[in-house]
Amino acid sequence: MLDHISLITGNQGKAREYEGLLGIKVTAVKQDLIEIQELDVVKVVEQKAQDAYSTLRAPVLVDDTGLTLQEWNGLPGALVAWFIASVGPQGILKMAAGVTNRRATATTAIGYADETGVQVVTGTLNGTLTTELRGTNGFGYDPIFIPDGHHRTYAEMSSEEKNAVSHRRLAVDELRKALNVFN
């Protein structure tokens, strides 16, 4: 069983989320990885996990998250981080101002790599894109995504509430089922 793992990310908030979800020490490691240009988070994660393990030579987690709008036929998908970095959540809302079908899907793919290879799991949660920023917690698109069955955005939820229902939680649950290395 692992009692700690490295997560390739520059996002300390994401590392804290994983620590809470996995119940082990998660060390954020900032590392430039090959990131293919692809809407499919699974394909992105497979490449990133291979690249991360070949550099670290120790068990490692990588992830990628996509947010897709039904009306945009899969966009922005895995490119959502670049959308957030360039225009922010408010910019996404501005681009989606004329969208009538605001159904959205958030998907996290987690890649675990060790000496035996790479395994990828996913967690997917449907929801709705808001019309305005709501809440101050979280990061990324948290202030513009309301998961199905809820009336608040991720950013309006506490960390504990978000971790109980998020697409990342669903992916971590799948990771626990697929691997027998976490408590």
Rank of each mutant, 00 (worst) to 15 (best):
1 M>V: 10
2 L>V: 12
2 L>P: 06
3 D>P: 08
4 H>Q: 13
12 Q>F: 14
12 Q>M: 15
13 G>L: 15
13 G>P: 11
15 A>G: 08
15 A>Q: 02
15 A>L: 12
17 E>C: 04
19 E>F: 11
21 L>A: 10
26 V>C: 00
29 V>C: 13
30 K>C: 12
31 Q>N: 13
31 Q>K: 12
32 D>P: 14
35 E>Q: 09
43 K>G: 04
49 A>G: 06
50 Q>P: 12
51 D>T: 02
52 A>H: 02
53 Y>N: 05
57 R>E: 12
57 R>Y: 09
59 P>R: 06
63 D>G: 04
71 E>P: 09
72 W>L: 15
72 W>E: 10
72 W>Q: 05
76 P>H: 06
82 W>D: 11
82 W>V: 03
85 A>F: 11
85 A>W: 14
89 P>D: 15
89 P>H: 11
91 G>S: 12
92 I>F: 06
99 V>S: 11
99 V>K: 07
101 N>F: 02
102 R>Y: 11
105 T>D: 02
109 A>I: 01
110 I>C: 00
110 I>E: 01
113 A>L: 06
114 D>L: 01
115 E>Y: 09
116 T>D: 05
122 T>D: 08
124 T>A: 08
128 T>I: 14
128 T>Y: 14
129 L>D: 13
130 T>F: 08
131 T>Q: 15
136 T>F: 12
137 N>P: 08
138 G>K: 10
138 G>L: 09
138 G>V: 02
139 F>E: 06
144 I>Y: 12
144 I>W: 13
145 F>E: 09
151 H>K: 15
151 H>Y: 05
152 R>D: 11
153 T>W: 01
155 A>S: 11
156 E>V: 01
157 M>L: 03
157 M>Q: 03
158 S>P: 07
163 N>K: 08
164 A>R: 01
169 R>P: 01
170 L>T: 07
172 V>R: 05
175 L>A: 02
175 L>N: 04
175 L>S: 10
176 R>E: 04
179 L>P: 12
180 N>H: 13
180 N>L: 09
183 N>H: 15
